[in-house]
Design a protein around this nucleic acid. Structure first.
Lengths: 149, 149
DNA sequence: CCCCAAAATGACTATGATATTCATTTTCAT
DNA sequence: ATGAAAATGAATATCATAGTCATTTTGGGG
């Protein structure tokens, strides 16, 4: 993790950038914290330790990470984008429309079929977005369990 | 088609609404026109026949149709949402990142796998969004054809 | 350690899509 | 025709995000 942060900073420096305390702090929280953060959520977390951090810097840091390939932009249609570390293996998302929780899954057969169907349409796929919406175990109305938190 | 528009109007009336010339015009264009329209595109089309139609009414009409189940909101990450008639069979989308064209496809095996994978995660799926991004036949760099328009 | 130019920051403003407000117009049952 | 409710359109508000700019931070060379 420290290694990762150092690597990113080195990469920035090697392309003419400079290190920055604020940015390091933001990146640390981003990579350490749970996935799928909103800019607003990340800003709030970052301000706990450093009251001065502005939202602009969080936007800039996240855009930078996305450009460098270390973060992915997610859009679940909530109005605001979410970001996740792109260092984990590729996966798609299960979004609970009740509690907002986001789970991840990976299904190679779906990936294969997507590739296939795209080619059948004369399409050269470069990327996809798949999100399944519904209710998680805790929120399903017919389920026997109750949400606890 | 006339039948559809009348049915929708009747449904609106039966829930306490009133008929409206502007809305009828907007709906007519929406259902007749090609799919995947932006609010701005639909407003432009609607204003050709009636210069007074305001964007607010187009937003309201589309939201209404979506609420009633006759339209679907699409978000391909372009900044503005797109809308399509929800009367056609379920399908997913192929979005060309070069020319912006949107094609549709249906792959029951993908649907099945989504259902399955969701259940494996204790999830009750109600809906999904799948968009494959890439380049269409005409825009693929390695392809032999050139874009003509 | 100091200097300074480039980069980064944060507050503020701009932007663009969408939602809301409100005065006016339209609809429609009476 | 009449009036109340609904719909409209222009203007304004809102919200996420991007851009501006004066100030601060960074880091290499003296």
């Amino acid at each position: 993790m420290e290694r990762l942060l150092r690597r990113i900073d080195d990469e920035i420096v090697s392309t003419g950038g400079k290190r920055s305390r604020s940015r390091a702090h933001i990146m640390g929280i981003f990579f350490r914290s749970g996935r799928h953060l909103t800019v607003e959520e990340l800003t709030r977390k970052a301000r706990v330790k450093n009251r001065n951090i502005g939202a602009a810097t969080v936007y800039r840091t996240l855009k930078l990470l996305a450009r460098m390939g270390y973060a992915k932009e997610l859009d679940f249609g909530e109005g605001a984008k979410r970001y996740e570390s792109s260092l984990t293996a590729h996966h798609d998302h299960l979004v609970c429309t009740s509690c907002g929780n986001v789970a991840e899954f990976e299904e190679p057969r779906i990936e294969k079929l997507q590739e296939k169907v795209a080619r059948q349409h004369g399409f050269s796929p470069t990327m996809h977005r798949l999100a399944i919406y519904g209710q998680c175990r805790g929120c399903a109305p017919s389920g026997e369990k109750e949400k606890t938190g």
